[in-house]
Amino acid sequence: MAQLFPKWTNKLPKQVQLLSILGLTAVVFFFWYFGSPKYLEVGYAPVQPIPFSHQLHAGQLGLDCRYCHGSVEISSAAGVPSTQTCMTCHEYIATDSEKLQPLRDSWESGLPVEWIRVHKLPEHSYFNHSVHVNVGIGCATCHGRIDHMEVVMKSEPMSMGWCLDCHNHPEQYIRPVEEVFNMAYEQPPNQYEFGKMLVAKKNVAGPIYCNACHR
């Protein structure tokens, strides 16, 4: 009687075992690495209708964040500036720049410049800028060194775990309220004690119940 299984099948169980271990590990790794907001969202840098440079405006010229994002201290939204805000200077500066044509069109037509939003949370979570800047969470803590960015790029994952990291231990990131809009602020070497002191002073208790953000 001929053999039912040829000789090579002797190796099969071992190969299947090895492959499934490798395969499963690869699947888990794949989702862990490529399914995370750290991969999917960090680095998002869309092309805007006007190639506005934060590196020039916030960096070289040193404009305060609030010059344009004026509602950040009083509202949940930091606000994208109106055409009028741009025109306080650009009515006189770079008036013949081709790159600024969409701005001038908007100024004439009254229709907004359609900027593309870079930092967008899922719509089932509610974030409030004013609460954060008024207790001492700096702009750069979440948005990175915007003043170094020629094109704004999302630099933090803004995932739930990322939010909770700070909500659980705000002393890691908190800074004095006066330094919130200072892009170049550096944490002191004793950040932990300093942070603890600021947390106590401002009575900061980052809420960690679901309802705080998911309403």
Partner: peptide, 12 residues
């Protein structure tokens, strides 16, 4: 991770 890209992010 962290490479700049221009298309809107996709989600799992």
């Amino acid at each position: 991770r962290g490479q700049p890209f221009e298309e809107p992010p996709r989600f799992v």
